[in-house]
Write a protein that binds this DNA or RNA. Structure first.
Lengths: 335, 335
DNA sequence: CTGAAAGCGCTTACAG
DNA sequence: CTGAAAGCGCTTACAG
């Protein structure tokens, strides 16, 4: 078999022009059905592979989208984003797009270095997956390809981002605890840490407000310092009956800590998480938590970026996707 | 700023030809240093971005490599391969290559469907990351781009693969246990499961042979059935003083099981793992284990695939990369 | 329904 | 040291 088969080769074999072959293979108007069928058949027989680069050059589009994940989210505990990539990839495929995954090193982030896939025109747009510095956000907004931010947002203007509804998820979760008779409910997380931890806290707070439960400052329990390093939990004198943790990993840590201190989960106190990641089922008992709806978030993100590639003026703003409650064994009904 | 700046635009601005611009930007012979400098400067000022597609078409190369990960390895417990991707990516960057990550769905694997990145000539070669069916291996070997298998191998011929040295890693680990006075050493893993679990077992066995310790069939403890589902451990009557687990996750499970049954690790028995993944530090005590040398494996893999792209005839065979012993707290010296 | 011509943005081989 | 010409493999706009 010849190494490199082009439309012209197919055309010559059939005694037609390469224009006709192009039309046939792209299912365009202007070729008789019979000829089209033959062309496709011969293309198959000859092992023809379409050359995207020729099309790219003509159209000025690469049919690739750059997915940028900051290095710190590609660590050993973060299978999460690989799954996200998978969903993004599946959705892009429908639009004949491929994903070029780029892990942004801390150094490049600091130096505001744009990835080569951009400077060499290998991509038509960016999906930024995971929080990056405001400076980097600003720079990437000023490139001449469209950008969508996935799973985080900043307060900068003109930003299109797709997020899990942190606020609503924890609001719903806290309501669930209250329906199960809990009134002494603590929130575990540093509320000055990231915006998503903050939003989750606010969801918890709203739920308390609605049920006329006073917010007890002792019931806001720090899990990490401002730099993100975990610190030992300081449990309040008056023990809560339930803990709303800002993520599953913290719930995992808390449960281990509670056990060491002689408490039984969920009989002495209930614990809930957020994310439904690997930690949710590593705990004993398994965690009741909120699952991020990656599938829907990915679908929406890809739809947006493709629209933006076609029409630069489209904007979407901050789009929230609701998560799903996952009921397991870490909550006790105390009514 | 004009949307699309080409070498011709730079050339016109400077009153030279686009050939000269091409030479200058590519640091080729035949342009005076002074002119080269000016050209680069103007390119910068104009915000020029190189168009890879034009080069691709000329050369018939895309400067992309497809990294294929089978779906089952992209699950929530598998951050491992994302880290691998990161290292691969860094190494490819040096060669001006980008990675297109494709998660191969179970369905496409079964139907022997080639990814679009291949059929549309978006890639110059494949790196297969994670075990796939022999049929798929065979098919991908017959495409007209080179392939390297990373982190697994099959007995099919003409296969270039890069592997962690499972055999040697466990051999070294078992030697270490023996040096610490252990004689009653069990292996935990289904030796009919995957080739790497088998190879690890053989490393264990070699170590026993060398020390003239008889292989006790009761000391081969199954961790999963033939389908890969974990099953309860059946501990032997005569308890071993050490357990060599085929991976960290199994060591994690075993330690939890031992604790439930009233054993203390490492005082009653030592436990070691393999992989140094997330499970290695989730256990209490933390695991002594073997770390896969991802960095070196990635470097070698990329070097090989690039060489193979340049010269199709190159072959490398099965290349083993030694892992690194990580000493933590799960082994007791009983001498 | 079919095709000749031009062009996308580079690079290579050759001539000066 | 510099550049005119040709070509990579498609697609678009137009003519028949």
């Amino acid at each position: 078999m010849k190494g490199n088969i082009t439309m012209r080769d197919i055309a010559e074999k059939l005694g037609v022009s390469s224009v006709t072959v192009s039309k046939a293979l792209n299912d365009k108007e202007g070729v008789s059905d019979e000829l089209k069928k033959r062309i496709k058949q011969v293309a198959d027989e000859m092992g023809y592979r379409f050359n995207t680069h020729a099309k790219s050059m003509k159209e000025g589009l690469s049919y690739n989208i750059g997915i940028i994940i900051p290095e710190q989210f590609a660590g050993s505990t973060q299978a999460f984003y690989l799954q996200f990539y998978q969903h993004l990839s599946q959705n892009m495929d429908v639009h004949h797009y491929s994903g070029i995954l780029h892990i942004l090193s801390r150094e490049d982030e600091r130096n505001l270095a744009l990835p080569r896939i951009y400077t060499e025109k290998k991509i038509d747009g960016f999906i930024m997956l995971g929080q990056i510095s405001p400076e980097y956000v600003k720079m990437i907004q000023n490139t001449d390809v469209p950008v969508i931010f996935l799973d985080f947002y900043t307060d900068q203007t003109n930003i299109d981002s797709v997020l899990t509804d942190n606020f609503f998820g924890v609001y719903e979760m806290t309501n669930y605890l209250i329906r199960n008779g809990h009134k002494k409910i603590a929130y575990v997380g540093n509320i000055h840490s990231t915006s998503s931890i903050q939003d989750r806290f606010l969801g918890y707070y709203k739920s308390l407000l609605e049920s006329r439960i006073e917010l007890n400052p002792d019931y806001i329990i720090k899990d990490r310092d401002e730099l993100g390093n975990y610190i030992p939990f300081e449990l309040p004198e008056d023990m809560p009956t339930a803990f709303v943790c800002n993520c599953d990993q913290v719930a995992f840590n808390l449960i281990n800590d509670l056990k060491k201190k002689g408490y039984d989960v969920p009989n002495d106190c209930s614990v809930v998480g957020f994310d439904n990641d690997i930690y949710a089922t590593l705990t004993e008992p398994k965690l009741t938590t909120v699952e991020v709806n990656m599938k829907e978030m990915s679908k929406v993100t890809v739809k947006f970026i493709i629209e933006k590639i076609k029409n630069r003026k489209k904007t979407y703003g901050r789009v929230m996707i609701k998560g799903t409650m996952i009921y397991r064994d870490s909550v006790k009904n105390i009514l």
